[in-house]
Deep mutational scan, measured.
Amino acid sequence: MTYKLILNGKTLKGETTTEAVDAATAEKVFKQYANDNGVDGEWTYDDATKTFTVTE
């Protein structure tokens, strides 16, 4: 399945996607991606759209 991440960081905004077997796996990938890019904030997940959002 394809999962999407929306980044609403103070210095980085954008979107990315990943292929993962489940939401938990996608979340690990996205949290590492956000961490690597210096984005740390509040996370939400919408199962209907398979979209994670992180907002600083």
Rank of each mutant, 00 (worst) to 15 (best):
K13W: 12
E19Q: 14
E56A: 07
D46P: 00
Y45K: 01
T11I: 12
A34D: 00
A24S: 11
T25C: 07
Y33E: 02
Y3S: 00
E27G: 07
N8M: 11
G14Q: 12
L5A: 03
T55S: 08
V39H: 04
W43A: 01
Y45F: 08
K10F: 12
F30L: 05
T25S: 14
T49K: 07
T18Q: 05
L12C: 12
K13L: 07
E56D: 08
F30P: 00
T44S: 13
D47M: 10
Y45T: 01
T44L: 08
V54M: 05
A24T: 09
D47N: 09
V39A: 04
T51L: 05
Q32Y: 06
T49Y: 05
E19A: 08
G41S: 02
N35Y: 15
Q32R: 12
L5P: 00
T25A: 14
V21Y: 11
T49P: 02
N8I: 13
V54D: 01
T16S: 08
K50C: 06
K31M: 07
A20Y: 02
A48V: 12
D46L: 04
K28N: 07
A23S: 12
T53C: 07
K13R: 11
T16N: 06
K28L: 13
A20C: 06
E42C: 10
T51E: 04
N35T: 13
G14N: 09
L12E: 06
K10E: 08
A48F: 12
N35G: 09
Y33P: 00
D47I: 10
T11L: 12
T51A: 04
V29W: 13
G41V: 02
G9A: 08
T17P: 02
A24P: 09
T25Q: 13
D47E: 15
K50M: 12
T51K: 03
T18G: 03
T16W: 15
I6V: 09
G41K: 01
T55A: 05
K4M: 08
E15N: 07
Q32S: 08
T18H: 06
E42M: 12
V21P: 15
T55R: 07
V39Y: 07
T17M: 10
T17I: 10
T53K: 06
T49C: 05
A34L: 08
F52A: 00
N8G: 04
D36R: 10
G9T: 15
T44D: 09
T16L: 14
F52L: 01
K4F: 13
T44M: 10
K4H: 13
E56P: 05
T16R: 12
T11M: 11
E19V: 15
K31D: 02
N8H: 10
N8W: 12
K13G: 05
T53H: 06
L7K: 01
Y45A: 01
K31N: 04
G41C: 02
L5V: 04
G38E: 06
M1P: 07
E42I: 14
V39F: 14
M1T: 14
T17G: 04
F52R: 00
L7A: 04
G41N: 02
A23M: 13
K31Q: 10
L7V: 14
F30G: 00
G38M: 07
V54R: 01
G9L: 13
T2E: 10
V21W: 13
G9C: 10
T11P: 04
A34T: 05
K13M: 09
K28W: 11
A23P: 11
Y33D: 01
K50G: 05
A26V: 02
T16D: 03
T17W: 13
T53S: 06
K50A: 06
Q32C: 06
T44K: 09
D22A: 04
A26S: 02
D46C: 08
V54I: 10
L7G: 02
L7E: 01
V21F: 12
K50N: 09
G41I: 01
N35K: 15
T44Q: 10
V29F: 15
E56V: 08
D46G: 02
E19S: 12
K31W: 08
G38T: 04
T25L: 07
E19D: 09
T51R: 03
T49G: 05
L5N: 00
K28A: 13
N8A: 08
A34W: 03
V29L: 10
V39L: 10
G38L: 07
F52S: 00
T51G: 02
D36C: 08
Y33N: 02
T2D: 05
E27H: 11
T51N: 02
V21S: 12
T44F: 10
N35H: 14
G38A: 07
E42L: 11
Y3F: 14
D36G: 06
F52W: 07
A23Q: 10
D40Q: 14
Y45W: 04
N37T: 07
N37V: 15
Q32W: 06
K31E: 04
W43V: 02
A24Y: 11
E19H: 12
G14D: 09
A48Y: 11
Y45L: 02
T25E: 15
K31A: 05
I6T: 04
E42G: 05
V39I: 15
N35I: 15
D47Q: 09
L5S: 01
L12S: 08
E27Q: 11
K10A: 12
D36I: 11
E15G: 06
T55P: 01
I6G: 02
K4C: 06
T18A: 08
W43P: 01
V21N: 12
Y33T: 03
V54S: 02
T49H: 06
Y3Q: 01
A23D: 06
T17A: 07
A23T: 07
T2N: 07
E15Q: 12
G14H: 10
K4V: 12
K4Q: 05
K10Y: 11
G41T: 02
T25I: 08
V29R: 10
D36Y: 09
V54A: 03
F52Q: 00
T16A: 12
N8C: 10
Y33Q: 03
E27T: 04
I6H: 05
T55M: 06
E56S: 09
T18N: 03
G14V: 15
D47K: 10
M1N: 14
G38P: 02
A20T: 05
F52K: 00
T44I: 09
G41A: 02
A23V: 12
T16G: 04
V54F: 05
G14K: 13
T51D: 01
D46S: 06
T17F: 14
V21Q: 10
D46I: 05
M1Y: 15
Y3A: 01
K4S: 06
K28C: 07
D40V: 14
Y33A: 03
V29H: 11
Y3T: 00
T18V: 14
G14P: 04
T25H: 13
K28P: 03
D36V: 11
T18F: 11
E42K: 11
W43K: 00
V29P: 01
N37P: 01
K50E: 03
D46Y: 04
A26W: 01
N8D: 10
L5T: 01
E15T: 11
Y45N: 01
G38F: 07
K4G: 03
K4P: 01
V21C: 10
T16I: 15
W43D: 00
D46V: 05
A23G: 05
T17V: 10
I6R: 06
K13Q: 11
K28Y: 11
Y3K: 00
T49Q: 06
K50L: 13
M1K: 12
A24H: 10
G9F: 14
T44A: 08
K50T: 04
A34C: 10
A48K: 12
A24R: 10
E42N: 11
L7S: 03
T53R: 07
Q32M: 09
T51V: 06
D22E: 04
E56L: 07
G38V: 03
A20G: 04
A24V: 11
L12A: 08
V39D: 02
A20D: 03
W43L: 03
A48P: 07
L7P: 01
T2Y: 09
I6Q: 05
T53M: 09
V39Q: 04
M1I: 14
D46T: 05
E56T: 07
D46H: 07
K10P: 09
V29T: 10
T49I: 07
